[in-house]
């Protein structure tokens, strides 16, 4: 699978402040790419460079094989984190204007708006002013405006903020739907559970540097700690725990079950297979719980950022 977007060794300074230092990312076509990082890491600067709002000091950006240029504006849909609309303008007029700025003709924009307004059940807002709508309602309009011109690349910065769970779900489904139709999505958020759920690839930016990137599954594999969450029942729990502690690296675990069993996190010994551990455990008592601990994106995020 080829890459839709190639950011190559991009650096950007604002005066003395280094916003991006030699950052490269590759976004595969048709994937959902998570751009992660703490506040002020440089994510927004990178996104603005991709949108040609600011120019990089050094480095190149290629979209679909071509060096980024003015013609690419219509290929990108951008939903910024700091978003807003003209408050005193009517919803319909405003959506038409923004669509035309992205290069759609008026009739085409009207047709597509009609489709989207019906799809999201917001058709009767056409003649309302933005200031009459709630924040969530305005966000929906903004989402429509972002995707209306059917861009190859969609960039969402915190797309779910301001939405109630029902609408957040609706938007999430729409994003997946767009991906299925061939769009590539860059997704910047602090909500790790949605990264977990949606992203195929991620890149982590910290203090202007990219410190981690790749396929989410590969990264998880890399961060695997070979530890299992174990629930085991025995007549003498203390003795069992002492015995296990001698053989393995053991710590107390905390998870909810129905039984009052011994709950432990057990790290595999080097060279052992999970089955070796399981066989050993079954010989000692009744195993009610046996799960490999996979690091969450949240854990990886915190761990990597702290180590840097």
């Amino acid at each position: 699978m080829s890459n839709l977007l190639e950011v190559n060794q991009v650096s950007k300074n604002f005066g003395d402040f280094k916003a991006l230092n030699n950052v490269s990312i590759s976004v595969p076509k048709g994937s959902i790419f998570g751009l992660l990082g703490p506040n002020g890491a440089g994510k927004t600067t990178l996104i603005r460079i991709i949108n040609q709002i600011t120019m990089p000091d050094v480095g190149t950006v290629h979209l679909d094989g071509n060096l980024l240029n003015a013609n690419h504006i219509k290929d990108i849909g951008y939903l910024p984190e700091e978003r807003g609309l003209y408050k005193s303008m009517k919803v319909g007029e405003q959506a038409l204007y923004l669509a035309q700025l992205k290069g759609l003709s008026k009739t085409e924009a009207k047709e597509r708006l009609k489709y989207w307004f019906e799809r999201l059940e917001i058709g009767d807002w056409w003649n309302k002013k933005i200031q009459e709508l709630s924040k969530g309602m305005a966000q929906k309009i903004q989402f429509v405006v972002t995707v209306l011109h059917q861009p190859k690349l969609l960039i969402f910065d915190e797309p779910f903020s301001g939405f109630d769970p029902i609408n957040a779900n609706l938007i999430k489904d729409e994003i997946l739907h767009l991906r299925d139709q061939g769009a590539t999505v860059i997704f910047s958020t602090h909500r790790m559970e949605s990264v977990e759920e949606l992203c195929d690839d991620i890149a982590l930016i910290h203090k202007s540097n990219k410190i981690l990137d790749g396929k989410l599954v590969d990264i998880k594999r890399q961060y695997k700690i070979n530890t299992f969450e174990v629930g085991i029942n025995s007549t003498d729990k203390e003795a069992l725990k002492a015995e296990l502690s001698q053989k393995f690296d053991v710590s107390l675990a905390n998870f909810k079950t129905l039984e009052d069993e011994l709950k432990l996190n057990i790290k595999l010994n080097a060279g052992d297979k999970p089955n070796d551990l399981l066989n050993f455990l079954t010989s000692k008592g009744d195993v009610s719980h046996f799960v490999e601990l996979i690091p969450s994106v949240n854990d990886i995020f915190i761990q990597t950022v702290k180590n840097n």
Binding site: P80, R83, K87, L98
Partner: peptide
């Protein structure tokens, strides 16, 4: 007004 309503970033990603 464009600044306070925060529409500016959307606009200048187009023009």
């Amino acid at each position: 007004e464009e600044k306070t309503s925060r529409i500016i970033e959307v606009i200048i990603s187009s023009v």
